[in-house]
Amino acid sequence: MSVTTNSPPSGPNWQRFTPAQRLARYAVYLVAVMALVWSVRNVSIIPEFLYDAHNQMADLLTRMWPPDLSYYPTTVHGALIETLHIATLGTILSIVMAVPIGLMAARNIVPFRVVNEFAKLILVASRSVNSLVWALLFVAIFGPGALAGTIAIAFRSIGFVGKLFAEAVEEASPGPVEALTAAGASWPALLLKGYWPQVQPAFWSIALFRWDINVRESAVLGLVGAGGIGLVLDTAMNFFQWTRVATILLAIFTVVVLAEILVTQIRKRLI
């Protein structure tokens, strides 16, 4: 290849964006500001409530203090454990359902567009409904309690786990899979030795991350009667037992922080 020298005499002239791109960027800024203004006007803040908000908050905090810690061993502890069970079982159940759907959604596993799109539809449907709404639905079906909460958590998590799992599978390098195909490996053997070792770190990372989210989500499911600590919280609030509410909130906060620390530690070791 011959070397070409084509730098203009006036020196190089470089701009990050073309004028059209710059115009488009300004348009995006404008739209963002307009959206902000529009939404602030829409939420219709009532100024009278805003003015004494700090008084209300201080009032609530004084009523909460000191937390009624004697309430913890009698009621809160059991509900907390139930919440953890809902989160854990729900996560496991969601993984069982999400893995096959995720595989169906991955284009390098199932080379049929119709199947991919169908699987993605299921994943989107699962994600588009909030776990509280799922819980309402399952409370209606199974009656109030931890079972409804567990299934609600599982259904909400399918979309999250399935989508991320499918993406991890699609990112797997095709080279090793090609080599194992050339060695005469069957389809399940390809999944087991070609894809799984590549997807494994992502898989555990997704599962732990989702469990962490589910611990938080299952804490509120009781508000709609789907078991766990939310039920106790709802009762305490309905009876204005603010010192008990404080205990419950503290318990939730502690568990969420502990779950976060645990997950971070395990993930560090996985990669």
Partner: peptide, 24 residues
């Protein structure tokens, strides 16, 4: 078959990569 980019399963041990040759 031997490949340009080796196409080993990176996260498996060397011995298990060899055993992958027996998958058929």
């Amino acid at each position: 078959m031997v490949f340009q980019e080796y196409n080993l399963v990176e996260r498996l041990s060397v011995i298990e990569n060899l055993l992958c040759g027996r998958l058929g």
